[in-house]
Design a protein around this nucleic acid. Structure first.
Length: 707
DNA sequence: TCAATGAGGCTCAGTTTGTG
DNA sequence: CACAAACTGAGCCTCATTGA
C-alpha cells in the first residue's frame, strides 16, 4: 500500500526499504554521510529521512537496553521467553523486522516485558478496568495529569496507556454523537472542563470564558497562606506547580503586583522577577499567540460573524461589511475604535469581540485584554488605593468568579472579618487606651477598605499626626502603621525617632534663643536688646538673616535640618560645637558663650568684651527680683553641670568619621586647624583661630553635626 | 511594557500492528 | 475483518526568558 510512493515523515516505510535500512543498521548504527547518501539514492528517499530512521533505530536500541537493565533488576517479575522477533515498541518500526526473512536479521530470544513496562504489546483492559475508566471518563473527558497517573497506578498500566484510552474514548464518543462527521473541534468548544484542565486548544477554537457553575476548583485544598510564611519556614519555597497555584490565587485579587510583592514571590517561587511579572502580565492581558502558532483558520472566520446583532453592539461597527474598504483597520485605528466602543460598552459580548478581532486583525484575546486593561485603568484612576497590598486586597469587581468561588470567598471574608474583629478586640485590651485614642481617623479603617494602604506622603502625614500625641507607640501600633504604610516596623520606628529628635533639636534651639533673649532683657534694657533679638532669631534660623520670628521660619529650618540629617550614617547623639580661640585654655572657656555656634564673628567678639559686664549684672540682679534670682540660680546650676571637664586629645584620624556627616568630614577645621577633641561627655571641641570663624560661620550647617 | 523566541507539553489525525 | 492499542508529526498552547 505504501510501497509505491516515497514515505513522508510519519508514514511507515515499505518492507523492502525497511529491511535494507535495518540490515545496514545491524552493521553500523551510525553510518557515515556517504553511506546515508548511498542508501537514500537506492531507496529513493531523502538523506534526512534516512538519518531520521537511523536515529529512531538508535533510540529504540537504547530503549531496549534500558528494558534489559530493568528486567535484570526486576528479578521477582515473571520471566517468560518466547521465540519471537524483537518486541515492537513502535509497530511501524517493527513492521519489516517482524516479517522480514530470517536471513537479514537473526531471530532473537525476546523477553516478554513485565506488564508495567513501556512498549509492551497490546494491553488488555478487563471489565473492572473498563468500569473504573468509564466512571472516570464520565466525570471528565480530559483528566488532569494527576488523575491519569492515579488511574494508571490503580489499573497497573502506564500513564500513556491511560491517556491513550481517554483519547480513543473521546473519539469514540464524538463519533457516536456526530455520525455524520461533524468536526471534533465543534464538540470541544462545548467542553468547558477541558478549557479548565487542558493547557491547549485546537486550532480555530476560541477559548471560552469558563462557565461559572461547572468549574471544579482545584484550589479547594490549597489555600495560599502567604501571610505568615517567612523565609525560614518550611514551605516558603514553592515548586512550580505550587507557585502557579499561588500566583493564580493572588492574580484573582490583584492583577498587577508592586515591586516588593514581585520580589517576594520571585523569591518564594525561586523564579526571576521578570518571570513573575510576565506571568501576571500574560494572565491579565491574555496570552499573545505566537506567530508560530497563528492558527491557519484564524483569518478565515465564518462570515456569520457579520450577522452578529447583539443589541449592545456599537452601531458604527455593526454595519461594516468585510468587503467594505476600511473594514480592516491598522493598529492605531483599531485602538481608536476600541476606545470609542469601550466608552459605551465596558465588556463586549463574544460576537462583538470576535468581530473586532476580525476588523483589527488581532486575536480575540488581544481585544478582550484591551477592554479589560481599559477598565482596570479606569478603576485604578478612581480608586483611592495608592499602594495596594498584593495579597489581601480584594478586588470586588472580579468577573470570572465561579459560583463556588463566590460562596467560598464570602465565607472566607466573613471569617476574616470575624478574625480581624477579634484581633482588634484583643489588641484593644492589651494596648494602652491612649494609643487607640490617638487614632481617631485611623481606628475605623479596616484592611479591606479602600484607602487602608497609604502611599509615602499619606503615611508621613499619619505618622506625624500620631507622633503628636505619642512619641513612641507600642509594638502593636507600630505593626499596624507599618502595615498601613507598607513599610517595615523598623522604618516606622525610625520615623518616630526622627520626629522626636527633630523636635528635641527645635526645643533646644528655642530654649537657647530664649535664654539669650532673657539675658538681654535682664542685663540691658537699653538699645542692645534689639541686637540680641536679632541674634536669637538668627540662632533659631542661622541660614536666614531676616528677623522673621514666626513659626514658619522654624519649620522651614527644621525641614532643612531633617533633610541634611538623612545624609548622615548613624546618628548617635547630638553634640555641641564649642568654638574657642586658638591656644585658649579650654577649662576657662565660658560655656554660655561658646555654645553659640553660629554667632557672627563681630558679635562673638562683642560678647567676649562684654562678658565681665554681663556677669556682674547677673550677680547683682537677683537681689532686686526674686523670680529672676531663682531663674539665674537655676541657670548657674545648669552651667555648672555643663562645665567642660578636662579634655582628652584625640587624633583626628581616630575619630569615627563614618558616623559623622560627610559635610563634616570635608570641613577644613577638622584637619587644617587642629585635631578635634572629644570631651568626656562626648562633645566635640574644635580649636581654631578666631579668624577662621568666618569660614566656619559660612558653614552654617555646623550646628546640625551629630555623632 | 511588549514583542519575540525557544522549550516543553498536550491533543488530534492518521497510521500500522496485534488480537479475537 | 473489526476493533484496540501504540505510535508519530503537526498544530497549538503555556511558560520562562530576553532584549529593545
Amino acid at each position: 500500500m505504501t510501497e509505491n510512493f516515497p514515505s513522508p515523515l510519519g508514514r511507515p516505510l515499505c518492507k523492502r526499504k525497511r529491511n535494507l535500512i535495518d540490515a545496514t543498521f545491524e552493521n553500523d548504527n551510525n553510518p557515515k554521510r556517504e553511506t546515508i547518501a548511498h542508501l537514500a539514492n537506492i531507496l529513493q528517499l531523502s538523506e534526512k529521512r534516512i538519518q531520521i530512521e537511523f536515529a529512531r533505530l538508535r533510540a529504540k536500541n537504547k530503549k531496549d537496553h534500558y528494558r534489559k537493565v530493568i528486567k535484570t533488576l526486576n528479578t521477582s517479575a515473571p520471566v517468560q521467553t518466547e521465540k519471537k522477533t524483537k518486541t515492537p515498541s513502535h509497530p511501524r518500526a517493527e513492521t519489516s523486522t517482524m516479517e522480514k526473512p530470517s536471513s537479514s536479521t537473526p531471530t532473537k530470544e525476546v523477553v516478554k516485558e513485565p506488564e508495567n513496562l513501556i512498549g509492551k504489546s497490546r494491553s488488555i483492559y478487563t471489565i473492572d478496568d473498563m468500569k473504573i475508566l468509564t466512571k472516570s471518563f464520565a466525570k471528565t473527558q480530559h483528566p488532569s495529569k494527576q488523575r491519569i497517573e492515579k488511574l494508571a497506578k490503580k489499573l497497573d498500566k502506564t500513564p500513556i496507556q491511560v491517556k491513550n484510552w481517554f483519547t480513543r474514548q473521546r473519539t469514540k464518543v464524538l463519533k457516536q454523537q456526530y455520525p455524520n462527521g461533524l468536526t471534533i473541534k465543534r464538540e470541544r468548544e462545548e467542553s468547558p472542563e477541558r478549557a479548565q484542565n487542558s493547557r491547549s486548544l485546537p486550532a480555530g477554537l476560541i477559548k471560552q470564558e469558563p462557565e461559572p457553575k461547572i468549574i471544579v476548583s482545584h484550589h479547594e485544598n490549597d489555600e495560599p497562606t502567604v501571610k505568615n510564611i517567612s523565609e525560614g519556614d518550611e514551605g516558603f519555597y514553592l515548586d512550580p506547580e505550587e507557585s502557579r497555584k499561588l500566583f493564580l490565587e493572588i492574580w484573582k485579587t490583584e492583577k498587577k503586583l508592586s515591586k516588593e510583592a514581585l520580589e517576594y514571590y520571585a523569591k518564594r517561587s525561586r523564579k526571576t522577577i521578570g518571570a513573575v511579572r510576565a506571568w501576571f502580565y500574560n494572565k491579565t492581558n491574555g496570552k499573545k499567540i505566537c506567530r508560530k502558532s497563528l492558527p491557519a483558520d484564524f483569518i478565515k472566520k465564518e462570515p456569520e460573524l457579520e450577522a452578529s446583532h447583539h443589541e449592545n453592539f456599537v452601531q458604527s461597527v455593526k454595519n461594516i461589511s468585510e468587503k467594505d474598504a476600511g473594514f480592516y483597520l491598522d493598529h492605531i485605528e483599531s485602538k481608536k475604535l476600541f476606545r470609542e466602543i469601550w466608552k459605551t460598552e465596558k465588556k463586549l459580548p463574544k460576537e462583538a469581540i470576535e468581530f473586532l478581532a476580525k476588523r483589527s486583525r488581532k486575536t480575540v484575546f488581544a481585544v478582550r485584554s484591551f477592554f479589560n486593561d481599559e477598565t482596570n485603568r479606569d478603576a485604578k484612576k478612581t480608586s483611592k488605593q495608592s499602594l495596594p497590598a498584593p495579597i489581601k486586597n480584594k478586588d470586588h469587581e472580579l468577573e470570572e468568579k465561579t459560583f463556588e468561588d463566590e460562596i467560598k470567598d464570602s465565607v472566607q471574608n466573613e471569617s476574616q472579618c470575624e478574625e480581624s474583629f477579634q484581633n482588634d478586640k484583643n489588641a484593644g485590651e492589651n494596648i494602652e487606651p491612649s494609643w487607640f485614642d490617638i487614632l481617631p481617623t485611623v481606628n475605623n479603617i479596616s484592611e479591606k477598605d479602600a484607602g487602608f494602604y497609604l502611599d509615602h506622603e499619606e503615611s508621613k502625614k499619619l505618622f506625624h499626626e500620631t507622633w503628636k500625641t505619642e512619641r513612641m507607640p507600642p509594638k502593636e501600633a507600630l505593626e499596624y502603621l507599618s502595615k498601613r504604610s507598607s513599610k517595615t516596623i523598623g522604618a516606622v520606628r525610625l520615623c518616630f525617632n526622627r520626629e522626636t529628635k527633630k523636635n528635641e533639636d527645635r526645643l533646644r534651639k528655642d530654649k537657647e534663643a530664649n535664654q539669650i533673649k532673657e539675658k538681654l532683657q535682664t542685663e540691658n534694657h537699653s538699645d542692645k536688646s534689639s541686637q540680641f533679638d536679632k541674634e536669637a532669631s538668627e540662632k533659631r534660623n542661622p541660614k536666614s538673616l531676616s528677623t522673621d520670628k514666626n513659626s514658619s521660619a522654624d519649620i522651614l529650618s527644621s525641614e532643612d535640618i531633617v533633610h541634611r540629617e538623612t545624609e548622615k550614617v548613624q546618628i548617635k547623639r547630638a553634640i555641641k560645637i564649642k568654638i574657642t580661640g586658638e591656644n585658649d585654655v579650654l577649662d576657662k572657656v565660658e560655656p554660655s558663650k561658646s555654645a553659640v555656634v553660629n554667632k557672627e564673628p563681630e558679635k562673638v567678639e562683642a560678647s567676649k568684651k562684654d562678658s565681665a559686664e554681663k556677669n556682674r549684672s547677673i550677680t547683682e540682679s537677683p537681689k532686686k527680683d526674686p523670680l529672676k534670682f531663682e531663674y539665674l540660680q537655676e541657670k548657674e546650676q545648669k552651667e555648672d553641670e555643663e562645665q567642660i571637664p578636662p579634655l582628652e586629645k584625640i587624633p583626628a584620624d581616630e575619630l569615627e568619621y563614618e558616623n559623622v556627616s560627610s559635610s563634616v568630614k570635608t570641613l577644613p577645621v577638622c584637619h587644617k586647624y587642629g585635631s578635634p577633641v572629644i570631651d568626656k561627655t562626648g562633645r566635640i571641641i574644635i580649636h581654631m583661630n578666631s579668624r577662621q570663624l568666618v569660614n566656619i560661620y559660612q558653614c552654617s550647617h555646623l550646628h546640625t553635626i551629630k555623632l
